[in-house]
Amino acid sequence: MAEFDFATELAAARQTFQTISDALNPEKLKARVAELSQQAAAPDLWNDQDHAQEVTSQLSAAQAQLRRVTEMAQRLDDVETLDQLGHDLDDPDSVKQASDDLAQIRKDLAEMEINTLLDGEYDERQAVVTIRSGAGGVDATDFAQMLERMYLRWAERHGVKTKVLDTSYSEEGGIKSCTFQVNEPYAYGKLSVEGGTHRLVRISPFDNQGRRQTSFAAVEVIPLVAATDHIEIPDKDIRVDTFQASGPGGQGVNTTYSAVRITHLPTGIVVSMQDERSQIQNRAAAMQILESRLLVLKREEERKQRKELAGDIKASWGDQMRSYVLHPYQMVKDLRTGYETSNTAAVFDGDIDAFIDAGIRWRHQEKMKEEAQEQE
């Protein structure tokens, strides 16, 4: 193993930090914080709770970014001072502490660098995630529920609030589909790289002969609409159906028709909602998700993008983006980035940051390639 060269590592860390600082633009961040603070101080802010929550959420995110940049600059100065003092005083403990601190700084800089790559049009939005079971029968519905837990555990690990909006349970076990909202700035930018077909290979717990089974599930991630998006949906373009909300095994079954299903007739998009207590609340929530999906379609048409933001995900052979193999060996591998790990239990428990980071870097590289080809 190569010897740790403090001076070289520090120089590399400062160079990385400068690139991050240039991208984040601390002066611009300060102006943004000041603007949002002024909006947050308005006496009538909470007259519109949705707008108020958006303002306070954006303010919190901007303040956190500015704080990270400021603190990182100080940490780099402090670790350099500690190393110099250690050598001046011939104190090996201080020298070692400086090396350990610098190693942690390099890790934290890598995380900060990822955040600078979240510069897409929708990346700063909250996210709506839909998981659907695909080919594979009851194994697929069970896999879909495993993925739901994986993403909810990821959010829990990061202290991110989520809200399950709709779940369709399978009679045999697992779920046919679920939709949940991730209420955190830049949730879409991070989770959008998780969109696609996921494949599971394992010995089926539902096969009494213990045979290996391959099953699929589709993950769709869309940005939540903002008040400024102005997506008009004429009443004639939608069909609204109401039904009784239900839970697994008869749990939580309502006696009123509070659940709502909205079908957008021109596109065939269907959104179901049963989380709220009243039909009016469920209809409002369903309309917001429908607007989010129509926003994605609208922007795609305007830019004539070949690559869809949400995508037409088939959840079957030939189009998977990630494989989860539990037999005959243990491995989770992303087929786009090549990142893999044998710790499958940790992945299903929400430890997917490395996959998300690799996906963000891969997406950025693909974007750079496309821009270079357009300039040729």
Rank of each mutant, 00 (worst) to 15 (best):
A2C: 13
L10P: 08
N25T: 11
P26W: 06
E27L: 08
K28D: 15
L29N: 04
Q38N: 14
A42H: 15
D44Y: 14
L45C: 07
W46A: 05
N47G: 10
S57Q: 10
D77V: 09
D93R: 12
R106V: 07
L109P: 01
I114A: 12
G120T: 02
Y122M: 09
A135W: 05
D142I: 07
L147P: 10
Y151Q: 03
R153E: 10
K176I: 00
N183Y: 14
P185S: 03
S192M: 04
V193C: 02
E194L: 05
R199G: 00
I203R: 01
R212L: 09
I222D: 12
V225C: 09
A226C: 12
A226E: 15
A226L: 15
I233M: 00
I238M: 04
T242E: 07
Q244D: 11
G247F: 04
G247E: 04
T256E: 12
R261E: 05
R283F: 11
A285Q: 14
A286Y: 06
S292D: 03
R293N: 03
R299V: 05
A310T: 06
M331E: 13
V332L: 03
K333P: 02
D334M: 00
E340R: 02
A346T: 00
G350A: 02
A354D: 09
A354W: 03
M368E: 05
M368T: 13
E376V: 15
